[in-house]
Every structure is written in C-alpha cells, then in structure tokens.
Nucleic acid binder design. Structure first.
Lengths: 215, 215
DNA sequence: GTCTATATATCGATAGAC
DNA sequence: GTCTATCGATATATAGAC
C-alpha cells in the first residue's frame, strides 16, 4: 500500500481533533453527567491540553450540544427502516433490532440523551418540539395504517412507540445494572441475541402483528 | 380537635428538618444530577440556611446516599404484590399498575435512581449486588413457576423483568419528553389510564398470560 | 440548634508567549 | 494551531458568635 504523505492541512487537523474531543466528551458526559463532567477530564481522555478544547469549542455547553445533536441524528437515521416495511413484523422487528444494536454499540450516546431529557432538555428542547415531534407523528400514522389494513391489533400507537423506546434503550441506559445482575459480566453475544428475540417476540405477539402475505 | 402543645423535642426537630431536606434534595438531584445539584439550591428549597444542611448531613454525598436508599426501599415494597398473586394476569398486572403509579406520583425518585445507575452506581453498588440481585432471582423463580404451571408462555423471565422496569419507569424518567410530545401538557388522568392499559394489554398478551381458573 | 462569614478547592474560561 | 500560567466565579465545607 502506498500512502501519500501530503502534510495535514489546517482543515484536516481541525476535523481530526474535533473528532477526538467529541468522542472523549461523549464518554465523560455519559459517565458523569453534564454537571459532573469536567473539561480537564475530557482533555485528558482526548490527549490534549485543556486550553485546546476551548480553541475548538468555545464553551462546555457548545461541546455538549454537539454531542447530543450527533446522537439524535444517529437515532433518526436508524429509523428509516420503519417506513419502507410492508407491515409491523418486518418494520417493528427491524426497528427493534436496529435500536438494540445501537444500545449495544453506542451505549454512551444513549445515556447522554437520557440524562439530557431527564433534566428537562435544557439544551435540545427545540429538537424535541420540532424534529422529534414530526418524526413521532409520522410514525404513528404508519402504525395507524397497519392497523387499518388489519395487520395488527388496534393498539394506541403512541404508547407502542414509548414501549419500543423504553425497552430498547434500557439495555444501554441501565447497562450497568444489567451487567451487575449478570454476575458482573457484560452480556455475551448469545445473551444479546436472546435479548433481541425476547423483546421482539413479546411485543410483536402483544400487538397481534400478523405477517405480510408475501413475507 | 384538641392538640397537645408539647414543645418539639430535639428529636422531633431533627426528624422534621431531615424530612424537609430529603424532599428538597430529591427534587434538586433529579433536576440537575448529582454534579449539577448545589447544597445552596437544596437549602433554599428546604427553607433553611445552607450551613444547616451540613449540620444534619455531613457531606453532599451522604445526603445523596440517603435519597437513593429511600427510593430503592419504596420500590421493593411496591413489589410485594408479586408473590401472593395466583398467576401472571393478577401478579404482573398489579405490579405494572403499582410501578406506573410510582412513576406518576414520584417521578423525581425514579430519575435519581436512573441517574445513579447510568453513572455506574458509585454510591449504591452494594445494593445492586445484594438486595436487588436476591429480589430479581426470587421474582424469576415466581415467573418460572407460572410457566411450569402453564399459566403463560415460556418467555425468558430476566428479559421480561427488564421490559417491565423499562416500560413503567420510562413514564417518569422521560416524562419531560412525553409531556413535550403531548403538546406541552402533562398527561391527563384519562391518558394515564390509557397508558396503563396499553402497557398491561401488550405485555400480558405478549407473554400469553392465561387468567387463573378462579379469577 | 441556628446562622453569618469565610476558608479552601476546583471549575470554566482566557491571556499571551511560542 | 499549541500550551503554560492564571484569572474570576462558584462550589463544598467549616469556624465561631449567638
């Protein structure tokens, strides 16, 4: 493999350092909360002097805001699968799988979001009122359509969505409790498979989801 | 009504002030997290000078620990209903009702617990490893017995418990998000009834719970 | 048991040399 | 773009008069 040794441009340096800082910040904010996190700890974890953080992100809050925004966008993307599906078995099943996988691979992000919402969303309230509201209304329409088409029981679509969010995110947000109850060991691959199957099985049966005719 | 005007003893004063402080602390810790909470804010909310907090609770952490302990004991008590029930319809139904009612009446406590667990339980890890572990094992045994008796499908009892916790506590921990998606209005009485019914209906049907013969 | 004043530590943020 | 030194604000915690 031949690599080009073009020196890093200012833009490259900026992008790389911002990435380092954002990754470290997500972990620290998840572990300690906004108030408990310190710029010093984030700097240490990113391997940079504290002053450099303020060079790239003017304030602690602006850094935090970018962390939360990134998480929110990831979640919205993971839900595209919802609309294209022919029915609840495929749509909700794939959505549960996708959200469980985020909880497994990206637990810190889920925790930062949970903490932000628990504290009454001081930084991203505007996202709740606009993007999340519109997304939720759209997905409730999809569920209502499935109900009208006889593909599932007439459940309240709002509380079904809450149950999906709660159940899948629980494996990230309460991962430490789950690990403790698992004898102090992280969930194994097989246990994650069992968790996904349990969640999908109970919820899909609970809403009377019927497989699509051409499934 | 005749009241006895015995002057308050030192013990009475202590009990009353500790109660004032603990109630204020629970709210402040829930709203701001441990790191974001300040002794000054707790003192203001309790109507006492800040120095008095340190008279009753030597450190911020000792005050926080008592808040978390109180919540944990409340939750354990709310689950007594589990064992006496003849089957999952009565037992899990009543447990869901009880936990939803706690989420409604006592949301701050649920948030403090969630925050503590999300931050890897720095203060109450011993409770997770002893009391919660034993409680969980006992309740899984109950569920296994119901399965053996043919009263419900052979679901994984551990993931069923996680689903119960996640779904019910979501209405407290993410109450702000739910309120925002409800047009900025808190859930009405009727909406709480609908939420409880949705959760019970989906989960009980999802695990194939069959009513007891003499129910 | 109460309260004002203050000690001590630490945080976010910045100045300024390199 | 980097880094040391430091400012100013604010936090926990305590001392000591009442």
């Amino acid at each position: 493999m031949t690599a080009s040794y073009r020196p890093l441009s200012r833009k490259d340096i900026r992008r790389e350092n911002e990435k380092l800082i954002l990754e470290a910040a997500e972990k620290v904010f998840a572990e300690a909360g906004f108030g408990g996190a310190t710029m010093q700890l984030i700097a240490d974890m990113a391997g940079l002097p504290k002053a450099n953080l303020h060079y790239y992100f003017p304030t602690k809050e602006s850094l935090y805001r970018q962390v939360v925004q990134a998480i929110f966008l990831d979640w919205l993307k993971a839900a595209d699968i919802f609309d294209a599906a022919p029915g609840p078995v495929e749509g909700l099943g794939a959505y549960i799988d996708a959200k469980m996988e985020i909880s497994r691979r990206h637990p810190a992000g889920s925790k930062v979001w949970a903490s932000e919402v628990m504290h009454r969303a001081p930084v991203i309230q505007d996202y709740l009122e606009t993007t999340l509201m519109e997304w939720t209304e759209g997905r409730m329409d999809v569920i209502r359509r499935w109900i009208a088409e006889g593909k599932m029981d007439p459940v309240d679509p709002r509380h079904l969505l809450y149950m999906l969010w709660a159940t899948t995110q629980h494996y990230a947000d309460f991962g430490h409790q789950i690990e403790t109850l698992n004898g102090g060991r992280p969930m194994s691959d097989a246990q994650w498979v069992a968790a996904k199957e349990s969640v999908k099985s109970i919820i899909l049966k609970g809403i009377g989801a019927r497989p699509s005719p051409d499934g």
